[in-house]
Design a protein around this nucleic acid. Sequence first.
DNA 1: TCATTAAATTGTT
DNA 2: AACAATTTAATGA
Length: 224
Amino acid sequence: MLTLTEMLGASMWARNLAAQHLQRVTAEITQRDVPAGAFACRKGEPVEHWIGVISGLLKVSIVSPAGRSMTLTGVAAGGWFGEGSMLKTEVRRYDAIALRATRVACMSRASFNWLCEVSIPFNRFLVNQINERCGQFIAMLEADRLLDRDARVAHCLWVLFNPYLYPGFGPHIDISQEEIGHLSGLSRQHVNKALHLLEGRGLLRVDHRGITITDVAGLGSFSG
DNA sequence: TCATTAAATTGTT
DNA sequence: AACAATTTAATGA
């Protein structure tokens, strides 16, 4: 299990921060353990924190009035989310559910605002992060509306592998096929078939309780 | 260290 | 959704 310090070391924004800035906000960050299946945050709550994943895996999703849920993205270790709501002062617009026992880091609004004021690298990071996310959501719309199931699995893994949003640790992603199913909105059976199809195309390798990406660009452009 | 068992995950139907 | 096969993790000799 990773520590907060190790996780920050991998986080894109913490890498480029001045030492004294990082030291101060690190001291102010609080940690919270979220059991599997529980909410890390809920739609409609006031947004008090910028949230990062220290270990585990979150699913960011929204639920329609009719009860249908739609997954927006997954957040793996090293990833942070909610900066949009920090900048705008609004209530949380989605749920974040732990797909397995997950430890999150919470940066208060005060710390976040302070970083925005004193750190140019942090502002540059925010612009890049929001830009990356914007590109991913466009790709997600395409995958969701135009592409088949195999491509949706490919896209969902490609999103998780994005080195900017989720600066993981190497090409291996620790995730079960069931968890991929929850992220992509498909059944475990479809995920299983899709993974082996993608493996046959040389884009990844199916491991036990995980996968190893061998061709990131290929995953991103896969469309059947 | 090795064997046994339980639990989790995968592959198929 | 249910089942069997496989892998990992945990336990104790």
